[in-house]
Design a protein around this nucleic acid. Sequence first.
DNA 1: TTTTCCCGTGTAACCGGTTACTCTGTGAAC
DNA 2: GTTCACAGAGTAACCGGTTACACGGGAAAA
Lengths: 339, 339
Amino acid sequence: MATLRDVAREAGVSVATASRAINGLGNVTAPTKAAVMAAVKKLNFVPHSGARSLTRRKTDTVGVILPDLFGEFFSEIIRGIDLVAHESGMHLLLGNMHGSTHETAAAIASMRGRVDGLLVMPPDLKPELLSDYLDPALPTVLLNYDAGSLDLPFVAVDNYRGAYAMTEALLARGARHVVHIAGPKHNRDARDRQRGFADAMAKIAGVRNPAILPGDFSEESGAKAARLLVEGQLPADAVFAANDQMAVGLIAGLAEVGKSVPGDLMVAGFDDIPLARHLNPSLSTMQVHIDRLGSTAMMMLLRILRGETLGAASATILTPALIARGTTGAMAQASGVHP
Amino acid sequence: MATLRDVAREAGVSVATASRAINGLGNVTAPTKAAVMAAVKKLNFVPHSGARSLTRRKTDTVGVILPDLFGEFFSEIIRGIDLVAHESGMHLLLGNMHGSTHETAAAIASMRGRVDGLLVMPPDLKPELLSDYLDPALPTVLLNYDAGSLDLPFVAVDNYRGAYAMTEALLARGARHVVHIAGPKHNRDARDRQRGFADAMAKIAGVRNPAILPGDFSEESGAKAARLLVEGQLPADAVFAANDQMAVGLIAGLAEVGKSVPGDLMVAGFDDIPLARHLNPSLSTMQVHIDRLGSTAMMMLLRILRGETLGAASATILTPALIARGTTGAMAQASGVHP
DNA sequence: TTTTCCCGTGTAACCGGTTACTCTGTGAAC
DNA sequence: GTTCACAGAGTAACCGGTTACACGGGAAAA
């Protein structure tokens, strides 16, 4: 592979001049520049980004550290990030942290010298721990994580208000006994959604201890909730699952025991996964623009890298939108095709 | 940020010794090593990967260049790659090529000095062009692309045999008039699937010019095909869509005009997207393990990087599996929950 | 004509690590 | 008591770019 020295020799100039010509800096006459460019072509020279980033002290790369994610979520976040990154000529260095806290630390450490900034979606670990791992000198934006005590910029989804709004909507459609299927206990999103549900039940319906079934965001746990619901003979005219996956499992489970949706029970989910609108009846849910989570965070990071101060914009909350569909009695849409 | 020089000074040794101690190379006494490690802890030193890769001439990173992909496909490939990469301590540098040929070249060029190898999924461009962009010195494995003339290692899905098998299955279930909905004209996968369909029709059913409707892999084009089918009064008792998305649109379109599946018509797709098994009736399709596309390619690349020669393994073909479900009259499965 | 200034270019230091080679001192072999 | 081998540590070159600074020469200013 040709180096800048080779190009300079070929063009009969010094490396400094070659470098200037290639990077379009001033102080190079047209003929000189032409000679350098000819040498570049001839030798098929491509600058070595690694070497360049060493002196420039910037890599034009941002590190993205995500936990193990389920398909749709993952790709949408990346898509959102990439969209913005690509516009600014930035590269994305992926670093999944596969579960363990130890790996998180390793993933972050291994980014030093490779990236100009970091987008981190921490799993459910404590802020104090996180701050131990993060390099304060490296601009960092957190994804879906309100750092609280740490004053790191972040983008998060307002799970609380989303759940509140959905519960409110179910009650408004006439439900009296709304049951919630919760997500994993240690999961922040799940906890916030549960709080939103409970608060809405308390404030709007005056119900202090609404029924809450355990779940773990999986389809299976939704189906299991259906059995619990029926066998336990819980009074229920609506079920609000903490995510769509569980709602899907729930509906299948209810169908098996002959309960109809929304006839016997209304059902609602959260996330608006693509499958939601294809179900029959289609699933009512809270729409979260996951890609915006990524693109917004990336934009924030870019601004920090440009030296701008974010101020109030350093905490961005995305509010999910209510999508009323068939499972809450809205008119069933023609499934399949939507412009 | 502390550098190796700082650590060396703090520990009272030379940079060479510090480097050896940190990297666990021999020729360092225990006390010396301990002193260095203490300095590392104290100064919170993290080696600068960029600098290290410059001298080592390896980056422990592989570049992944993918075209603009639809969600599921993208995340599954990445997941497969990451799975293997992570095990070997490799990083992933993402470089989407958003369409244009020019961008592809730029994406590949910008990888020089950043990566040890490349995984490239070329869009539908010609092999000759591709070889112009690729650096012969950089180990490269192609994804879903039979390089043909180029002797680059690749992993591909056997779309031809998959389509052949599905067509065969439809005929075996008693279909006489099978209609194909094709994918985008310039798309390799789509063309191979169409060939497989046409060949199966010719060889098994003796049909020379089977009906083929245009499509572009989108749901909309599937719905449009449904209209064409009904309005054109094509004789048809089975429709084989070149991918699941179109099959989904098709089924919705058929439902609108009162055609039942599989009663009036059997329907089959290709890919086995997650939605497929959730439809009612569930969609028969060819299962492609997209994640294996990624993991297999990554394994091949790792072997090349280790200096092994692949030999026959340099061309890996993944054969999709037939999944018979409700839309071809197989017993409808309880939708929603599957272990 | 002399001085000043600036433009185009070259020299060399530097980014932060790695490593070939050198040097020193100790214990084993003679 | 030499000589030799070798382990432990240091010096400095090097990876491939960027860039501060120096330098020479021609045009403009005096």
